[in-house]
Amino acid sequence: MSKKVYKVITAVKSTEDFKNVTVYGVTLVINGCETGKIADISSEREFVEHIVNKLNSHDVSEVHFYDVVEDFTARQLPM
């Protein structure tokens, strides 16, 4: 049986408007090897932690990883 865990990752990005902004993403680690990553989801760590907690608590399959994260981020955007 494979050991799968989703984790919060951190990166620093710069844009024309903002310099050195910390952003958070998610990595998928299976049996100690990174097998998937979305590097820049949000600058709000709590939001990304919420996603990671849901991914892990519901044991989301790696084939649905990107779709689930996309669904979460789409709900966060203002209409």
Rank of each mutant, 00 (worst) to 15 (best):
M1C: 09
M1R: 09
S2K: 12
K3L: 10
K3I: 14
K3P: 02
K4E: 12
K4F: 10
K4G: 00
K4H: 11
V5T: 12
K7M: 07
V8C: 08
V8W: 02
V8R: 08
V8D: 05
V8H: 06
T10Y: 13
T10V: 10
A11G: 10
A11E: 15
V12I: 14
V12Y: 02
K13A: 07
S14N: 13
S14E: 10
S14H: 03
T15Y: 12
T15I: 05
D17I: 12
D17M: 15
D17L: 15
N20M: 11
N20I: 02
V21Q: 10
V21G: 06
V21F: 00
T22S: 07
T22R: 03
V26K: 01
T27V: 06
T27P: 00
T27Q: 12
L28S: 05
V29F: 03
V29A: 10
V29N: 09
V29Y: 01
I30L: 03
I30D: 04
I30F: 00
G32Q: 02
G32I: 06
G32P: 08
G32K: 04
C33I: 15
C33R: 15
C33A: 15
C33W: 06
C33M: 14
E34Q: 05
E34N: 01
E34K: 05
T35H: 01
G36Q: 01
G36N: 04
G36D: 11
G36W: 01
K37Q: 05
K37N: 07
K37C: 04
K37G: 00
I38W: 02
I38H: 04
A39M: 03
D40M: 10
I41N: 03
I41L: 15
S42M: 05
S42N: 03
S43A: 13
S43V: 13
E44N: 13
R45A: 03
R45I: 12
E46K: 11
E46W: 00
E46T: 09
E46A: 15
F47C: 11
F47Q: 08
F47P: 00
V48N: 08
V48E: 03
V48G: 11
E49N: 12
H50R: 13
K54T: 08
K54A: 11
N56F: 08
S57K: 14
S57I: 12
H58P: 00
H58K: 14
D59A: 12
S61N: 14
E62M: 13
E62H: 10
V63D: 08
V63Q: 04
V63E: 05
V63M: 04
V63H: 11
H64K: 13
F65A: 07
Y66F: 10
D67G: 06
D67A: 04
V68T: 07
V69F: 01
V69P: 02
V69C: 12
V69Q: 04
E70I: 01
E70H: 09
E70M: 09
D71T: 13
F72E: 01
F72S: 06
T73Y: 01
A74Q: 07
R75G: 11
R75F: 15
R75P: 02
R75N: 14
R75T: 13
Q76R: 13
Q76C: 06
Q76L: 10
P78E: 05
P78I: 00
P78K: 10
M79L: 10
M79R: 14
